[in-house]
Design a protein around this nucleic acid. Structure first.
Length: 131
DNA sequence: GCCAACGTTGGC
DNA sequence: GCCAACGTTGGC
């Protein structure tokens, strides 16, 4: 899940503990939000910043429900809980250099703000990040 | 700040 | 339903 740190950063999530992931206005991203289940974990990615990178880990604590920030119905948000901020974030540059991550959506379709991750990619990333 | 890639809108 | 014009995202 991507966010511009100027708008909402991993530190902001850490402070809040639990936050609503609202503001998604893209159908594909919305569909991905809808598939997320309580207990699912996801990565927090900082986009549009000096060093775009995976910076943290979080967990879905509430499944998709109407996004109150939307002026039209149909958009949804989920609630996520802070789990951790990685001491060493994994930059997009690094990700692009790893052959195991070659087919990541992040590399292939960088604009999608809520992306699926394959199990093998997830395992690989967690091993790299969570030391 | 630039620009490529992508998504959305609206005329026909 | 096509496609040109326009808007947005996000890496660099």
């Amino acid at each position: 899940m991507k966010s511009e740190p100027d708008t909402f950063s991993i530190d902001d999530l850490k402070k809040k503990g639990v936050a609503g992931w609202d503001g998604v206005r893209n159908y594909q991203a919305r569909n991905n939000l809808r598939t997320m289940q309580k207990g699912d974990q996801c990565f927090f990615y900082h986009s549009s910043t000096k060093i775009p990178a995976i910076v943290g880990l979080m967990e879905v604590v509430r499944e998709a429900y109407p996004d109150s920030s939307a002026d039209k119905p149909g958009w949804v948000q989920v609630d996520v809980k802070f789990i951790k901020a990685f001491s060493t974030p994994l930059s997009l540059e690094d990700i692009k250099g790893m052959s195991a991550l070659k087919s990541m959506v992040l590399v292939k379709s960088s604009r999608l703000s809520v992306q699926p991750i394959k199990p093998e990619e997830w395992t690989f990333l967690l091993k790299k990040l969570d030391k």
